[in-house]
Design a protein around this nucleic acid. Structure first.
Ligand code: FES
Ligand code: FES
Lengths: 132, 132
DNA sequence: TATAATGATATAATATAAGTATCATTTGTC
DNA sequence: GACAAATGATACTTATATTATATCATTATA
């Protein structure tokens, strides 16, 4: 039932670190030293953030990652989408056959309401809002 | 990220069936035939509902389960608690050391808000509200 | 050219969820 | 009382998702 998995947790930490740093470009090695996170896991996750245009990447000596977006434009909702796909708290539990009035099913409705609420909250939380 | 796992899904179906039935006491065999659910799995889950006082159980020939509570008193929130423990969408992701101002952390606050919203919705959905 | 970085991708380990199997106990019917 | 049909208790297996590792290729800089 977790909304935030380790990928997302680590991603937030790394993004905050990069956002706070004086330097533009931060290497995975530095992040690992500072944040004590498992290196191969962090690498993969940052590569994903690069593919998804949240980070810029610089190969080679002195390379690393920098933010591709302002911290104000990096939404928690987007991070969740990147690592877990669309926010879906639940499918219809009755697989469209058993519920008496599917269109008006209170269960579906409630879950959907929770889902919408969650999405709106997550979409309004940014890395910037976590900076201080 | 699922709010409703198979335990809960099946439990709702079984409770609805029992609530709708003319008969008081319904056996697992009947439920399995009618609802096409895996029998040992369903059995275990109904036994749990018995232990948690949602169902009454009758052993022996002609036995089975009956509702121990009115459908209006069986809340989805309670079913979730039974099968997944307290509704917690997330722990503090920073394990109380990295966040600059833990007491005022917007992330914690948002997650908590979502959690509270979810709880209030789930607590207000009953088996009775799903009956028709 | 050596080194320090990322890109891509395959694999392994662990945790959680889903499902099965089995034996003991109870209870109604013949 | 014997048998059958049910639940009680509990151990086990399988499947799936999450978390983590390993490796080789590529790039850029000193
Ligand atoms: S949960 Fe699917 S119709 Fe109610
Ligand atoms: S998430 Fe724990 S203090 Fe912000």
């Amino acid at each position: 039932m977790k909304l935030i998995t380790r990928n997302i947790d680590y991603a937030v930490r790394a993004l905050l670190y990069i956002a706070r740093s004086k330097k533009e470009v931060i290497s995975v090695s530095e992040l690992v030293e500072e944040l004590n996170l498992p290196k191969p896991f962090l690498r993969r996750l940052l590569q994903t953030l690069h593919k998804r245009k949240v980070l810029k990447a610089y190969k080679g000596y002195g390379g690393g990652f920098s933010l591709a977006l302002s911290p104000r434009k990096i939404y928690l909702g987007e991070l969740i989408r990147i690592f877990k796909g669309n926010i879906k708290l639940n499918e219809c539990i009755f697989k469209r056959k058993l519920c008496p009035n599917r269109n008006n099913c209170p269960l579906r409705r409630k879950i959907k309401e929770i889902e919408n609420y969650a999405i709106s909250k997550l979409e309004s939380t940014t890395i910037s809002s976590l900076l201080d």
